[in-house]
Amino acid sequence: MKLNTLCYIESGNNILMLNRNKKKNDENQGKWIGVGGKLEPHESPDDCMIREVKEETGLKLIDYQLRGIITFVLPKWEDEICFLYSATQYEGTLKECNEGELQWIKKEDVFNLPLWQGDTYFLDDLFYLNQFINIKLVYNEQDELVKVCKYT
């Protein structure tokens, strides 16, 4: 099982989203997601998230919070546990990302983007509720969502 981080950075009513359109053999190809990536040896989830945000965006996070844990079950890919973060303060200038196009999107417009189907089950809570998110999203071979388990 793979361990990842995923961070959604807020600026006012906008969320920084990444259109994954540059890497070959990308499990997220064509989808819009937050920024983040795979934990490296000896990294904590916080270490990984801070490093990945800096690498992918050029931004240094000042204020961030662990908001949840997502378990992704994907038959075509390795299952993963993802540490979900939100961030509200940062410094630096946004740079070009080698994994895709970064864009600030209004919160309400995020749901109109090509997302993973399961993302809608946690993004609304992430954007509008202040509670810890614990969810399992199960996909089939065609990348269709077949089961959602929300835990309290």
Rank of each mutant, 00 (worst) to 15 (best):
L18P: 04
I81Y: 13
P45W: 04
L113V: 12
N19H: 15
T88N: 11
N21F: 06
V110H: 02
I15G: 01
I81V: 15
F132R: 06
Q117A: 15
Y85K: 08
L18V: 04
N14I: 01
L145V: 11
F122S: 01
H42E: 08
L61Y: 03
N19Y: 14
V53R: 04
L74G: 06
E78M: 00
S44Q: 00
Q142A: 12
R20K: 10
E101N: 14
I133G: 10
Y151Q: 15
A87P: 03
K107S: 06
E96V: 00
E96S: 10
L145C: 13
K31Q: 14
I105N: 05
Q131K: 11
I50G: 02
D79I: 02
G58D: 08
Y90T: 02
E10G: 05
L6T: 05
V146M: 03
L84R: 01
M17H: 03
V53M: 06
E141M: 07
K150E: 11
G30C: 13
G92K: 06
G68R: 01
E144R: 12
L84P: 01
C97E: 06
Q89R: 08
G30N: 13
L84M: 03
Y128T: 14
E96T: 01
E141Y: 00
E141C: 06
D124M: 14
Q117S: 15
R51G: 14
L66G: 06
Q103M: 08
P41F: 05
E27M: 11
R20V: 12
N134G: 10
L126K: 04
K147R: 03
I33E: 10
K95I: 00
L39M: 11
L18A: 11
V138R: 05
Y64R: 05
L123G: 02
I62F: 01
W116C: 14
E144S: 14
N130F: 02
G37F: 03
V148T: 12
S86I: 00
D47K: 10
L66C: 10
E43N: 11
L115F: 13
S86N: 14
T93G: 13
I69C: 08
Y151S: 15
S11H: 06
E40A: 15
E80G: 13
L61D: 05
K31E: 12
T120S: 15
Y128H: 13
E27F: 10
N140F: 12
H42G: 08
M1V: 08
Y151E: 15
P41I: 12
E55F: 11
F72K: 14
D119S: 15
M17K: 04
F132W: 05
N19Q: 13
D63T: 08
N112D: 15
S86F: 05
L129F: 00
K31N: 15
Q142T: 02
D63L: 01
N14A: 09
K31L: 14
F122V: 06
I81T: 15
L59A: 11
D79F: 05
W32D: 07
T71F: 04
R51S: 13
K38M: 09
D119E: 13
L102F: 01
F122R: 02
C97Y: 10
Y121M: 12
